[in-house]
Design a protein around this nucleic acid. Sequence first.
DNA 1: ATAGGGTTAG
Length: 662
Amino acid sequence: MNLSRSLLRPSPAGGQHGLLHLVDSCRAAAHLPTLRAVHARLLLLQHLPSSAVARVKLIQAYAACSALPAARAVLTSSPDRTTVFFNVLLRALTAASLHREALLLFASMRLQGPSCSPDHYTYPLALKSCAASGSLRLGVQIHASIARLGLDANLFVAHSVISMYARCGRPNDAYQVFDEMQHRDVVSWNAMISGFAHAGLFQRAVVIFREFVGLQCTQPDAGTMASVLPAMGNAKAEDITFVREVFDKMRFRGLISWNAMLSIYAINGLHVKAVELFVRMEKDWVEPDRMTLATVLPCCGQVSAFSLGKHIHEIIKRKRMCPNMLLENALMDMYANCGCLKDAREVFDAMSLRDVVSWTSIISAYGVRGHGTEAINLFENMLGQGLEPDSIAFVAVLAACSHAGFLDVGKRYFDCMTSRYQITPKAEHYTCMVDLLGRAGCISEAYDFILAMPIKPNERVWGALLGACRIHSNMDIGLLAADSLFRMVPDQTGYYVLLSNIYARAGRWADVTSVRSVMASKGIKKLPGASNVEIGDQVHTFHVGDRSHPQSEMIYKKLEELLGRIRGMGYNPGVEGTLHDVEEEEKEGHLSVHSEKLAIAFVLINTSPGTPIRITMNLRTCSDCHHAAKLISAITDREIILKDINRFHHIVQGVCSCGDYW
DNA sequence: ATAGGGTTAG
C-alpha cells in the first residue's frame, strides 16, 4: 500500500507535517500497521511531547482503526492533558457504543484538575452516552452542572439535554428544556420531534412537526424528515399527506429525505405510493443507496411489482452493492412475494453470509406454498449452523407446518420454542397453532387451545378457527368463532362470507339468507374480487365479469375455449360452485368469469408458450377457480402461481403445492 | 483538533 511507501521516504520538509498528514491518511484508510509505524517514527523524532495536535490526531486515528486501548494509551502517556484529549477519546467510545466506558472516562475528568474540566464539547458526548444507556440519574446531574455553568445557552448542549431526557423516558422534561430555549434552530425542533417519537408520543411528535412547519421561519431539513419518521407508524392519512407536502416543498431534497419519505409510505402499507415515489426518484436522477432499495424492494413484493423488482436487482448488480445481507434479504423477500421462488432461492444460495432473517425469509417462502418438508429441512439446517431462531423464525416454521398439515411436527416446534428457546408465544404463534390444529380437523382441540391461551385471542386467532370450521364443516364451533369475530370486527366482510359458506355447505339456505340480510342491514358489501397480472411493466386488473379490458373479446373467447376443453376432464362448475359461493349472482354463469379465470386467459393470450402465469388476488381463491387453474395448467403446459390473500398456490402440471388443502 | 437532530429486513 502506498501509505507505507511514503513512510519510507518521508517528505524532506522536516517530517512532522508529512507524518501528521500520514496519520490522517491512516485514519481515513483505517490502516493500523502503517499507523503503528508512523507512531513509532513520531516517538523516535520526539515530536509527541511538544505537539498536542499530533497526539490528538493519533487518538483519532487509533480509534478509526478500532484500536481503542492504543488510543487510550496516547492519552495516558501525555505529559500535558487538556479537555480536548478527553473529548476526542469520548467521541471514539460513543461512536463504538461503549457508553459505560465513556461515562467512566467522563467521571475521571474531574480528578484531572481544571485543565481537564468538561466543556461544551464534552457534555453532548456524555449526555449521548446517558441517553444510550438510560442513565437518567447521571443525566440529571449533568444537566445541573450545565445549568450552573450557563452552558445551556449553547445549542449543541441544549439539544443533547433534550435528547437525553426523551430517551430516558422523560419527554415532559425534554419539552421543558425545549420550551425555555431563548433561540432555536432547525435541529432544536428536530431534537424535540425525535424526542417525542422515541418516547412513544407519536401524536405529540406529529403535532410539534406541524407547528414547526407552520412557523415558516426555518425550513425543515432531512433531519426533520428522519426525526418524524419513527412517529409515523400507523399514521393518519392526513398526516402522511402533510409530510408528503412538506417533502414536495423542500428546496433541497437529499437522499435521506427521499429515503424517509419512502419509509413512511412503506411502514404504513402504502406500497404503491412507495413504488411510485421511487419511480419519481429515478426520473429526478437521484442515486438510490442501499437503504433506498432495501425499503422499496419489500413494497415491490407486496404489490407483486416483479419487473420493478428485477430492475432494482439490476441496479444492485450494476452498482456492485452485493454481497450485502440487507439487500440480499430484501431481494429474496421481493422474489418470493412476486411468486418467483426459484429466483429467491438463487439469491439465498449465492449469499456468503446469512442471518436469521435470511433463513426465515426462505423458510417462509417455502412454507406459504405448502412445501413443508423443504421449509423444515431449511429450519433444521439453520439450527445446524448454530443460529438461534427467534420469535419470527418460529412463526415461519409453524406456518409451514400448518400449510402442509404437519400436525405433530408443528406441535413439537411449538413446545421446543417455549421450553428450549424460552420464547413467549405471541398472537401470531397461537394463530399458527389454531390453524394447524383446525386444518388437521382437530376443531375442538383448536377451540380449547384458544380458551386456554394466556393472552387475549385476537381477530386472526378466531379467524383461523372459523376458516378451519369452513374446511371441516363444523357449524357449532364455527358459530362460536363467528360470534367472537362479529363482536371484535363487526364490519369485516370476509368473516360473514366464511360463515355463510359454512351454512351453504350444510345446505342451510335459510341461514345463508339471514347472514346476507345482516350484511345488507349493516351496509357491508362483499369485497369485489380482483386479480392482478403483470405483462412487461404494466399491471392489468380484472374483476368478476369484467368487460372493460380492450382485449375483452379475445379474453372471453379464449376462456370459453379453455373451459370447453377442461370440462371433458371432469371440471364441473355447478358442483363446486354451490359449495363455496353463496352469492346468487355468482352461481353457474358467473363462476366462469371470476377474475382469476379472466386473468389466466389474458396472460395466455399475451405471453409466449411456457411463460409462467403469476396472479395476485385480494381474496382467497374459490375452489372452482382452483380446480380450473389446475386443469388449465396441465392442458397449456404452464406453471400457474396464484398469490391469494394468505398463501401461494404453485400449480405445475395440474398439481398444486397446497395439496388442495387450504 | 473536538460537539447537536436522522433513515436499514424476515
